[in-house]
Design a protein around this nucleic acid. Structure first.
Lengths: 228, 228
DNA sequence: CCTACCGATCGGTAGG
DNA sequence: CCTACCGATCGGTAGG
């Protein structure tokens, strides 16, 4: 990695931020280089000093966003100190925080997927596929462990990605809610959405008795009795 | 409403379907009228016989989609035969089915919101605002009734919209899952995401005892005893 | 006068 | 970081 001059780096960063906002609002095709230049008060052709093409803006915007989710999800899934439920909670929280750290870039990536150069598009598709598989694996583990309902883990994983990505479209960094509280709320909802619970309520006396026995066992542990 | 010739209506419908797919894939700005014309095997200028401008395609695509959600949600919220929980379940199911009936149009509406003519954009914003309020009202009612956890109803409603809209981006009508089973899965997850349950588990002996008392009351009802 | 188009070309603007 | 341009293609409209 060649160290670029700080002036140039600063300008690149500023141009990218403007480009992200414009691409997120009007799309890649709907944004002209002239518009990007205008927001930065430079001539249009001067942009080519920093980015070799319009596509290079898009590449720079999304390349740091595309591949990271899979790595992070994989690390969470391998943490044996966390139950699947806690893994899912951590995963959802991480996904929301990640999305809210750069909301405009996520909207661009989601929106203008088809405009990505083929090599990057392939990385992006692989990243999505692998991330989905990691999240589905966490969910399957939780189903086997009895923590989660016996859901279709593909649909559940896709739906939870939806929950975690959606804040990119409505979150206002200048609003009253901070990213962390949104992440807490969404991750709690994500866990709740597939958590095994008394959805239907106990429906037979036998189930009620089993519930009482569970409660008594919990109570026994609390007061220090050995399990019988 | 003037009855148009069936031939013209048929052609309009076919053109709209092609336009929806192209707009959904490459965006409004990223799609040329030439491309739409090519997929329908007509000359580009012939399109002007059916639609007065490129914008008219966009308007026709989304105008039937924009305002309907609010009406349907409002009707569900006013059904006094349904508890808030069942209202939420019905609402989520309806939202998913609605999205999956025309996935491409929903993607276009979400993606190219900024390209809508101002009058339609205003309707769209109002539709989203009102729909959010209806869903939040259902959630608030459920919180008051004790069916739902005491969530921030705005965040919860936005997140549930996210869950219900996301299938538009991954659902494959030719795949093995049908729309109805996806709607069932997502609506169950939506309800579960805010349903009051033992999310944290009982944490004090007093809570365990309360749980046992609840179970005993349930058991008493089952075997026909009067509540004490 | 209507419909369903056609080949050609308008004035402007795109990325480079 | 500008001026001066290019090949092409854009959405939209002309006459027939």
């Amino acid at each position: 990695m060649v160290k670029a001059g700080p002036r140039k780096e600063l300008m690149e960063r500023e141009l990218l931020d403007h480009a992200a906002e414009l691409f997120a609002r009007n799309g890649f095709s709907g944004t002209s280089l002239q518009e990007i230049a205008d927001t930065a008060n430079v001539g249009r052709t001067s942009l080519y000093h920093y980015f070799s093409s319009k596509e290079a803006f898009l590449t720079a915007l999304v390349e740091d966003v595309t591949m990271t989710a899979w790595t992070l999800l994989s690390e969470i899934r391998q943490r044996s100190d966390l139950s699947p439920r806690r893994q899912l909670e951590a995963a959802a929280r991480m996904l929301v925080m990640r999305v809210l750290s750069k909301p405009a870039r996520f909207r661009v990536l989601e929106r203008d997927e088809a405009s990505l150069p083929e090599e990057l598009a392939e990385l992006h598709r692989k990243g999505k596929r692998d991330s989905l598989a990691e999240l589905a694996a966490i969910i399957d583990a939780g189903v086997v462990a009895g923590e989660f309902r016996p859901v279709d883990s593909q649909i559940a994983a896709l739906t939870i990605f939806g929950m975690c990505n959606w804040p990119a479209w409505w979150f206002n960094p200048k609003g009253q809610r901070n990213a962390s509280s949104v992440a807490d709320a969404v991750s709690t909802m994500a866990v709740g959405s597939i958590l095994r619970d008394d959805v239907a309520g106990p429906s037979t006396p036998a189930e009620v008795i089993r519930g009482i026995r569970d409660d008594l066992a919990t109570l026994a542990r609390m007061v220090g009795l050995r399990e019988t």
